[in-house]
Amino acid sequence: MKYLCLVYLEKDKLHAVPDRECMACGNSFRDRGVLLAAEPLEPTDTATTVRVRNGKTYITDGPFAETKEQLAGFYLLDARDLNEAIQMATKIPPAREGSIEVRPVRELVP
């Protein structure tokens, strides 16, 4: 089963964990064959929000809601169950600076 681990960090902590640590974490997930994808993100002030209403496109600067912590990156992992996913999430280095939201991936119904 797939789980998306969303990494949340406060803005001033976006670089608190050295990149090489994050790379090492990603590599160890890859070596175990559980990593489906993982990327870090630029801060939310580079974000653009897009909505389509009644066929018209609305574009706004930044994220929809201002929150203290922002999405800083993600890991898409393959785990047996939630326990294993939580176990993996504890290994993601920014877990000690911010938080990791573990979300099960939903299967689309054809």
Partner: peptide, 14 residues
């Protein structure tokens, strides 16, 4: 069900 919390007794370490 959806997040698949396993139906098991935790391992000794946990």
């Amino acid at each position: 069900r959806d997040a698949r919390i396993p139906y098991e007794v935790p391992a000794r370490a946990e």
